[in-house]
């Protein structure tokens, strides 16, 4: 059986080895960018079906961000929304024959979680100022400083591992079942994989929102989602 934890380079451009997830990400990026450009050209004030779907997506996203952060969603919309769309499309790309989802490889998830981590620090410093952002680590007392720092790292790791584990396990299980039966039997598992992929994309986006929100709000009480996260 193929080792799911190791990615083999397909080819290399100069010194840079290009692996399958990078190639898949490029394909997804190309599709998304083309779709965005195509949609942008046909944006009118009289929305057709596609534009309505896009607007529904953006409106729902704004509502979610506003509910979670109680702030104007405009600065965070593109980050959260792009992460959600990319993770969703990447998770669902397992339906395409011969395509392995880029999120089934830990490097992609690590890259996304890294971006979320950097964005957390960036928005926290930008909104509160460096001193107050650093002071928020001493909440509720200075004893909690190491714990808070460790929490920043562990929650990023849990973000990585959650997405990676879910998608990778789905791919792996389907691979095993496929090697056993081949026909029809993987279909329910693929359906479950779709559901898991959508839910994981949603969870990834929500957790990113919660992290950024808690960094922006400073010493406020953590929301319910963050409690769930720290307990899992």
């Amino acid at each position: 059986m193929e080792n799911p934890l190791i990615t083999e380079p397909l080819f290399s451009i100069g010194p840079v080895p290009i692996t399958a997830p990078v190639l898949g990400t490029w394909a997804i990026m190309a599709v998304l960018m083309a779709g965005a450009l195509w949609l942008r050209r046909r944006l009118t004030s009289q929305p057709d079906r596609v534009q309505t779907v896009a607007e529904l997506l953006v409106t729902t996203l704004d509502g979610q961000i506003r509910d979670t952060m109680r702030r104007d969603p405009a600065p965070y919309r593109s980050l959260i929304g792009a992460i959600f769309v990319f993770v969703l499309v990447a998770n669902w790309s397992s339906l395409i024959p011969g395509m392995e989802p880029p999120t089934a490889h830990i490097e992609t998830d690590a890259a996304l979680a890294l971006i979320v981590f950097v964005a957390t620090v960036y928005f926290g410093v930008k909104t509160q100022g460096l001193r107050r952002y650093l002071a928020s680590f001493a909440e509720p007392s200075w004893v909690m400083i190491p714990l808070n720092i460790v929490e920043q790292i562990t929650r990023t790791f849990s973000l990585i591992v959650r997405l990676f584990g879910n998608v990778m396990s789905g791919v792996f299980v389907i691979g095993i079942v496929l090697s056993l039966a081949g026909l029809f039997l993987p279909i329910p598992l693929m359906a479950l994989d779709l559901l898991t992929g959508a839910v994981q994309a949603y969870i990834f986006a929500v957790l990113a929102t919660v992290f950024i929100g808690s960094a922006v709000e400073g010493g406020h009480a953590p929301s319910a989602a963050e409690k769930q996260e720290s307990s899992s």
Partner: peptide, 23 residues
């Protein structure tokens, strides 16, 4: 969402098992 969160715990165990098996 809660189910996915809970399931993550099992996924952690699966990841550990895969690590033990393949890495």
């Amino acid at each position: 969402v809660g189910l996915a969160m809970i399931e993550t715990t099992a996924i952690y165990a699966l990841v550990v098992a895969l690590l033990v098996l393949f890495a």
